[in-house]
Design a protein around this nucleic acid. Structure first.
Lengths: 358, 358
DNA sequence: GATGCAAATGCACTTGTGTGCAAGCCTCAT
DNA sequence: ATGAGGCTTGCACACAAGTGCATTTGCATC
């Protein structure tokens, strides 16, 4: 029936959908399976089956379909496919993408997801609850199979609706105690502890910890453990935070700390960016030399830390392993037990800490 | 290894897609408009109209619909909506995402696109034609309104099918002569010329240009103009490339250049990353001091160039303006005249070049 | 109370897929 | 020759939305 009407319609251009003829930006000339079918002289089902793995098509029609598809430039519409089954879309909710560590994480994850046949949607958001909320909603709008949160803390209620809609929620390095979602995190406790031992072994006497005013759970945990372990060993720690997690904040923290009578000689910066800013201020503003006058430990292992001007001793986050674990999670059924998975940071020895005291 | 192509590539299909009824992980419990309609006691059309701007719904039913939607956690399915009208998806094809400059560009673009009501899909690809091709196919699979290419050079044929499908193609900083697509680019000619004048004004006598072995059109253009202008002024230029566009390559180039009898005293690095590596080697390996013994100009204005250890004089790319222009393009009808738009780089004066010769 | 008009509503069709079911076709063995 | 059995193939439906058109409802006016 519809075929008849289409045939009866003369070839003159359709009188546009509705509006005046002023412009016609409404055309959607994407070629569909039906067009391919008509051209190949087969049914639309045959086209669908040709592009479906394991479906039953004769070699002959398959050839005809592929030929017609090639000539027309046909590509399967994944949006339509996503109506029936999984969309294969994964949403990445992230803030501060320009930060080296975030860029690395996004890079690794998009790579791994792609290799697993997923496609990633980036939602560039702020860290406040408001924008995280609208990010989560976006995720639902596009029927993403999973939402991976790298920044910000989603509200428990919104996570609940995500889960209720059969969507997996994975938090990376967000140590917030939320139930129902997967939690990949680096072992911040070990980092805090090891950082202290590194500095003590180097013979440092006046310890400081530099952090940011963005009170992320990860940063707080590193701080807590470092201070606690130092206290157990009978050493006090000066804690300093001068702004967001950035080079400038680390720089400023150093100015403040060394502006006092006796600056520290052993510092744990909870982030490499902070550490590099701190190191630059210590050197250029106060003429200190590392590791002689000052030992410095960072966290993240960003590329810049390996540059000749810095050679920062730090801890690397095992992003590759985290990415592998993520795709493994996505492969499982939705009902897979949600829970926390902790990855060990890898100590990276460079030149900003003395090898031993003696 | 490549992205899942449109062809009948086996791909790694999840083995459970069509398996027996042994388990039921196939549930897609996403709540649809019909469910909301049933709960609210109205027709499905009413639900649709409630969420469509400007449609005619009484205040009463609207209230009922919104209430039911809230209770059920309903979110409009943008995939289904994308079947009829524009998908509002924009694909970003990018390689080397961890590079600071790329991360910045991706950050700005995702922000701008988001503000314009678009959603961005990241396709993390290699720069070879093969992976660019499968990236382009991915773009078509998801019916993206537009494809924005930040890395790699798509084949003319593939661009053609994109355009034939009504998809806009925007190349950013790819100066390849491809017809039919929009081209946003920074003025490399001006950069090369200005870089030379900066160095000459500083009184440099032995010029060098440091580039990478990745022969991007942008890099080649900067090199060509710099060398040409210098030649016109009667000065020779040593050109050096030691590897990909990275810190390490810049470092290596400096080792080679200063390992000779007379190293350069004025250098244009076509990329900031190269410049920072170059600077570090010049200082730490050869004890040079900037800008006394060596004047250095970069390009990109990455954050790291402003760090205290570097203070690199460079040119900034006006990404914000480019992003604004991009969303403006997307708002136009598809038939908008494709062409090239050139943006002026912004000179950033810092400390790596002497202010004047005298 | 009847009429007119506007707003609200519902039906049915559209978008592009994938797939269950049944029918058709071909081959082979009885 | 005929039925069994396996491969193909097409119909029709499902997925989740938006919307033109016709119909119904509500309300005011005559």
């Amino acid at each position: 029936m519809p075929l008849l009407t289409a045939a009866a319609e003369p070839a003159l251009s359709p009188p546009s959908t509705k509006g005046p003829i002023m412009s016609e930006p409404e055309r959607r000339p994407f070629v569909s399976a039906r067009t391919v079918a008509e051209r190949a002289g087969v049914s639309r089902s045959a086209v669908s089956r040709t592009f479906t793995d394991g479906a039953s098509v004769s070699e002959e029609t398959r050839r005809k379909v592929l030929e017609a598809a090639g000539e027309l430039g046909y590509h399967v519409n994944h949006l339509a496919r996503g109506l029936r089954e999984r969309s294969n879309i994964v949403c990445l909710v992230v803030a501060d993408m320009t930060t080296p560590i975030r860029a690395r994480l996004v890079d690794v994850l998009t790579r791994k997801l792609q290799a697993a046949g997923k496609v990633t949607m980036i939602i560039n958001t702020g860290t406040d609850e408001q924008s995280t909320a609208s990010a989560l909603r976006q995720t639902l709008n596009y029927r993403a199979d999973a939402t991976v949160v790298l920044s910000g803390t989603p509200s428990a209620k919104l996570i609940e609706t995500s889960l209720a809609n059969g969507q997996q929620v994975v938090l990376i390095n967000r140590d917030d105690p939320l139930t129902g979602c997967h939690n990949l995190s680096v072992d911040n406790e070990m980092a805090g502890r090891e950082a202290f031992f590194l500095l003590r072994r180097a013979g440092c006497r006046r310890l400081a910890l530099v952090t940011s005013t963005a009170s992320t759970a990860s940063l707080l945990e590193r701080e807590r453990v470092f201070v606690e372990v130092a206290k157990d060993a009978g050493m006090a720690v000066t804690v300093m935070a001068s702004g967001p997690t950035s080079y400038a904040s680390g720089y400023e923290s150093a100015r403040r700390l060394f502006g006092r009578s006796d600056g520290p000689d052993g510092v744990f910066c909870v982030t490499d960016l902070l550490a590099l800013g701190f190191m630059d201020a210590a050197r250029h503003e106060f003429g200190l030399s590392l590791p002689r006058d000052l030992c410095l430990v960072g966290f993240d292992d960003i590329d810049e830390g390996d540059w000749q001007s810095y050679k920062l001793t730090t801890f690397a986050q095992p992003f590759a392993a985290m990415g592998d674990h993520l795709v493994e999670l996505l492969g499982q059924t939705v009902a897979a037990a949600a829970g926390r998975r902790i990855f060990e940071p890898i100590p990276i020895w460079r030149k900003s800490v003395r090898p031993s005291a003696d």
